[in-house]
Amino acid sequence: MKILAVDDDELIREILSATLEAHGYTDVTLAESGEDALQKIAASPTPFEGFMFDIQMPGMDGTELCQHVRQMDHYKNSPVIMITAMNDKTYVDRAFMAGATDYVTKPFDTTELMTRIRLADRLQSEARKAAAAAASNPAAAAPKPPFKDPVTIKDVRGVVKSAALDNYVILMLEQKQFAMGAFAIRVPELENVHAGSDIEEFTYVVTDVAEVISDCLVGAQAFLSYLGGGNFVCVGAKNKLPTAESMHDEFVMMLNDPDLVYCEEVATGFTAQIGDIAAPKLFEKRGDLRFLDRAVEKLSEAGGKSGGRFAA
């Protein structure tokens, strides 16, 4: 994997280089600033396959650099691992918002560092194989993904891919800066939209729904991800997340505003199920993400309640 590692500290760059090289990653380019990184990206004869950006740097910081890289067509989905000290939650939030996919913390734990790199390497390899398969048979139309699969939502504040959300939660649990919580939202009518439209139209509608959720979460500093099957999960500081009761009516009203959620091909009357907030349990180890599963399970409990507060 061809890697670009960016850190303003020369010794950190050397540690990264030495560690990566010792583990077989010999194609590593180093940059000392965001500006230097952009120059090296532009000058590189072949594209990079993964990035490591220090978050806090003088001049263009890692978050701004990540935004620049994400705007480049070739790097829209490339792994971007942020390098962070343990104390900068605000910076980490901004980095994930800007499109970071993972993180490593300083001081480096070699095992953790290499786990993150190998994960990025694997994702990149899979993406390369998929692109090669598509290129080898351009005439074959890609089959429509099933409803249960997630679709990629772009350019909505706070929306990240499921894997990035997991990485963010693990980091926040390690930092223990606040009590985390998660809740899930299901919009059942998305199944009809999926059945009655092509994948492009379906993705537009899911993106509109995500925007509405994002608007409802303003002030909560929460992240959300689309899990597939009409289900979204939202994660943030437990005491800042809205309750189902406080959010439901306005959310459904917004969902049914055609200026906000528009589906050309399928008539919709959206309803929503909003689950109660789930939180990590005391006995669960750091890095244990089972509370995210519980958030989705609570959705089923919510859906089963009679005369429910979850009906539109």
């Binding site: 303003d8 500290d9 010794l11 950190i12 540690i15 220090d54 806090q56 000290a85 343990m86 104390n87 300083k106 001081p107 480096f108």
Partner: peptide
Amino acid sequence: HKLHGICGSVGQPRMGALAA
């Protein structure tokens, strides 16, 4: 901040904690 970031990787945890 820079010192905090590097100390733990060069065997100086106390210095890193003070910098933090």
